[in-house]
């Protein structure tokens, strides 16, 4: 039983981690908390449902479609909700946060109207593949989710640390103007960051749809807030911290159910936000907050 719960916790944690990676990427470069990330994730899941259930398309097409749509949404988000605020004088640093809250509210209710309020099943034969180890049933999806989350984490670390584009990204994160003086195309770098982060949200959405067979318009808000808690837990803008934070939260939530009261499952994330920010604002794995 314990091993089964451990698998549950790691699956949940890996999903949280993928969502948090998207958050942390945007924060690391732009210093912006993208409150709409959860809703973009939800749209990714819905695109998966539409492709596999409505059009009976294959799974790979669902992945492609979800990545394409969420990447496009990322572009629109950057173009209309973030860029207009960037070079404006006298705009408070709260403006992008508020603006993305607006995007999240808009997207959540938009999906209510497009897809309907109910729960949409995600039927993919891939999700049914499982194997028995002793008395434990393990689903292939659970393993895939874990592997993808680890791969994404390493890819992101490598990309940020070793490639030229990644270096440009980090330079932009250090200082926007200096980077621009040094010949980094800042506008393009920022847009690309938001697009990549959003596409990662889309991938996470499909994985959740497959793993839990459940897609609703409300799922974005819930997982978005969790993702927020994780990047605070793991340290803002810290890629490995996001991964670790995701796993910690996933396991903590699972074991509160096992040994405690499942009613407080949701409270862990929010309590963690408060405690971490008050005691160790740089997060468990962060060094220092750069303002």
């Amino acid at each position: 039983m314990l091993i089964e719960q451990l698998i549950n916790g790691i699956t949940l944690g890996s999903i949280y981690a993928i969502v948090a990676l998207g958050f942390t990427l945007v924060f690391g470069v732009l210093g912006i908390i993208n409150m709409a990330h959860g809703e973009i994730f939800m749209f990714g899941a819905f695109i998966g449902v539409v492709v596999t259930s409505t059009f009976k398309g294959p799974l790979w097409l669902a992945f492609l479609a979800a990545v394409a749509v969420t990447a496009a949404m990322g572009y629109l988000l950057e173009r209309f909700a973030l860029r207009p605020l960037r070079n404006k004088q006298g705009v408070s640093h709260l403006a992008p946060l508020i603006s993305t809250i607006g995007v999240s509210i808009l997207l959540e209710n938009l999906s209510h109207h497009i897809f309907g309020p109910g729960n949409h099943p995600f039927r993919a034969s891939f999700a049914e593949i499982s194997f028995q180890i002793g008395s434990i049933t393990v689903y292939l999806v659970q393993i895939v989710i874990f592997v993808i989350s680890v791969l994404l984490m390493y890819a992101l670390s490598f990309w940020l640390g070793k490639t030229k584009a990644g270096k440009a990204l980090r330079a932009t994160a250090e200082n926007l103007e200096t980077a621009s003086l040094l010949g980094v195309d800042v506008k393009r770098t920022i847009t690309m960051t938001v697009i990549i982060a959003s596409a990662m949200g889309g991938i996470a959405g499909i994985l959740v749809g497959m793993a839990f067979n459940s897609v609703t318009p409300q799922m974005g808000l819930s997982i978005g807030l969790k993702g927020l808690a994780i990047i605070i837990l793991g340290g803002m803008g810290n890629v490995k911290g996001a991964m670790a934070g995701g796993l910690i939260l996933g396991l903590a939530e699972t074991f509160v159910v096992v040994y405690g009261d499942s009613g407080y499952k949701d409270a862990i994330a929010f309590a963690a936000i408060i405690i971490i920010l008050l005691i160790r604002p740089q997060g468990l794995f962060g060094q220092k907050i750069s303002a």
Binding site: M1, E4, Q5, N8, G9, T11, L12, V208, A211, F212, S214, V215, T216, Q218, M219, L221, S222, I223, E253, T254, V257, V258, D261, S262, G263, K265, D266
Partner: peptide, 20 residues
Amino acid sequence: TETFQKGQSDYNAQLTKIKG
């Protein structure tokens, strides 16, 4: 007695406990 919340899509933890 187990609970769940709105917007949740993963009930595995509660169900595994019940199964046991």
